[in-house]
């Protein structure tokens, strides 16, 4: 698959010096193919997450298009776009993203069970094993540490083996060892044929990436 962003930009309405519009991401072109792992770094507030959210179909851009295999995803009705994201895009969002009334295993199986499909628990358990949280499968999210929750979110994003993986600070709560595991994971996913895009502060992420980008005040620099 090919992910293409054409003249993508995002403005927010917010009081600044001369105008009430604040430009978070300036017009940007961007292409990501299957099998490649791109890493985006940059200072806080530079527009990294905004850019990632636009790619994932969660934030309508002010101008420009996001094409996945030449399909303009923002032209899809909500139901189709949601289903498309469910089947083809794995998003690892920032922060704690557990559903508190479900166990760890149920949380991870959500991408399947949300639409009434078979849970694929074996695959889920294998992922948990790799991320070293298999013993927590029946625990509730409230009993987990920040790092464990993070790993749970990663397992959830990987379960459907999506063709596009978008990770927003996937290692923010993890120690060095776990950070390494996660980046190896992302690397491996790219090798297995997925298009992987990660936003991170981690400096050593570069060593896993095929391509390196930097976001500077809303401007993408490749």
């Amino acid at each position: 698959m090919i992910l293409k962003a054409e003249k993508l930009s995002k403005e927010f309405i917010r009081e600044t010096k001369n105008t009430n519009r604040f430009c978070a991401v300036q017009e940007t072109d961007f292409v990501l193919e299957s099998g490649s792992f791109a890493v985006l770094t940059g200072r806080s507030g530079s527009g990294k997450s905004t850019f990632l959210h636009m790619l994932s179909g969660l934030m309508t851009p002010t101008s420009g298009r996001v094409l996945i295999d030449d399909k303009d995803i923002y032209q899809l009705p909500d139901q189709e776009l949601s289903r498309f994201r469910n089947q083809h895009i794995g998003v690892i969002p920032q922060g704690q993203t557990a559903l508190h009334s479900l166990t760890v295993l149920e949380n991870i199986c959500l991408p399947y069970t949300l639409y009434g499909e078979e849970a694929h628990e074996t695959e889920a358990l294998a992922l948990l094993e790799k991320l070293e949280i298999a013993h927590l499968k029946t625990a509730l999210p409230a009993e987990l540490s920040g790092g464990e929750l993070r790993r749970m979110a990663i397992a959830r994003a990987f379960l459907r083996k999506p063709e596009l993986i978008l990770a927003d600070e996937p290692t923010s709560d993890l120690d060095d060892q776990n950070t390494e595991i996660v980046f190896q994971f992302l690397r491996q996913a790219a090798q297995d044929g997925a298009a992987v895009f990660a936003v991170t502060h981690e400096t050593n992420a570069a060593q896993y990436a095929d391509r390196l980008f930097r976001m500077n005040a809303g401007q993408l620099q490749g």
Partner: peptide, 18 residues
């Protein structure tokens, strides 16, 4: 209070109607 949980469901691919 659970806004975030609903946002997560959106990320995973739940539609607005869901």
């Amino acid at each position: 209070q659970r806004k975030k949980e609903f946002a997560v469901l959106r990320v995973i691919g739940a539609s607005q109607n869901q």
